[in-house]
Design a protein around this nucleic acid. Sequence first.
RNA 1: GUGGGCGUAGCUCAGCCAGGUUAGAGCGCCAGGUUGUGGCCCUGGAGGCCGGGGGUUCAAGUCCCCUCGCUCACCCCA
Length: 417
Amino acid sequence: MPEFQTSPGMRDILPPDSARWRHFVSVFAEVVEASGYGQIIPPLLEDIGVFARIGDATDVVSKEMYDFVDKGDRHVALRPEQTASVCRAFVQHRPTVPWKTWYAGPNFRYERPQRGRYRQFDQVGIEVLGVDDPHLDAEVIALGSEFFDRLGLRQVSLVLNSLGEPDDRSRYVDALRAHFEADLDALSDASRETLTRNPLRVLDSKRPQDAPLIEAAPRIAEYYSDEAAAHFDTVQRDLRAIGVPFVLDPMLVRGLDYYRRTTFEFQAGTLESAQNAVGGGGRYDGLVEDLGGPPTPGIGFALGVDRTLLACDDEGVFAAPAANVDVFVVDTTGGAAALAVTTEMRRAGLAADRAFENRSMKSQMKAADRSGAAFAVIIGSTELDASTAVIRPLRSDIEQTTVDRADLVATIQKVLS
RNA sequence: GUGGGCGUAGCUCAGCCAGGUUAGAGCGCCAGGUUGUGGCCCUGGAGGCCGGGGGUUCAAGUCCCCUCGCUCACCCCA
């Protein structure tokens, strides 16, 4: 074992995996920028107070924060998510609304790593601030669906719920607590523990023991105000109108305290139970105010890059990695000719690679094969003396040809097209 | 934070239960067979303090304890 390895829950993304990582982000950027969203790049580090507003009842804040005191005695934390940062930025810069933003980048949570869960994990997402309109909820949700579609992932389902207005939500939480406390013995130990911190999350328990009591629990819909009910109705009608399939789940309660009204989650059908959520979001109308700004409605979602890529693997979305280069230059005369030829090709816009250390032709040809290049250009002493080069197709049975060095780049460009 | 499984070559793993001379395989890598040509085949080579520490023993990759790491699950979340 080497002396140094990646810290727990951190990992290197190596080629060729890094290529699909970049592809993922660029597809996302295409989808949301075509809908008027602009990229925001918040810092990785914020005053810990920014994230504390996510909610004391959440593990994300209470146990999983990567926080420390810096040399200036500031208590800071690596961001566990980006929504709070976006809201902080809104309060700080006061852009005109609607403020439609997207982001991509790593977040940090100090948890035990497992499949699809890392301490440093990447998310892409969008946030819209300053608009209280159910049609926006529908747009945001639809963009998430559109992205998975564009990525090529098929088995993703959209789960939808509404937590009601804050008042509705708190009346419901009270009712839930009363319901569970009336029959505390029937609840699992873990859920009893959850109940004291956040009664809503008991609904999320997957323990069979809890199923009957959860089934018998009051439903959030019974506590909606007229406004909340109307808002949610419109969102559902919108989604049907534009052909975005979804399933309602009154038990969908998202983990972060700031959610209210519309909440949703994207679940991958190929991933097993607990880690099947590849993305989630909802309204967080009070968050900007909590951070010291004016009352401002907000909605957004975040998608987990790692988990979505796991789902992509299961569906074989990224089949064969593409070749890195068009041409591989084999030079058995010392290597200077390969330098000249690859440089000329690169300046002409071709992707070209070569071997070093003056290896044998056999060795260089093997490297050419491995590179995935469509053609090898071979320069030996004969070609060097005659100012020519051999063009050898590597992916077909076509005969190799010899061309003048002066015509080499033009010829390659022609055969590649 | 809790529990299970696993740490042996660059990678995937065998060997451990029933300790015994020099620790293996496949793939990958390098070289040669092929004095100018990749893939297929053949031959050879490099590459291991068997995760680390302690213990038992004449003897430990193998048994025991501790520790670190990875992994899966719980919890929580993306």
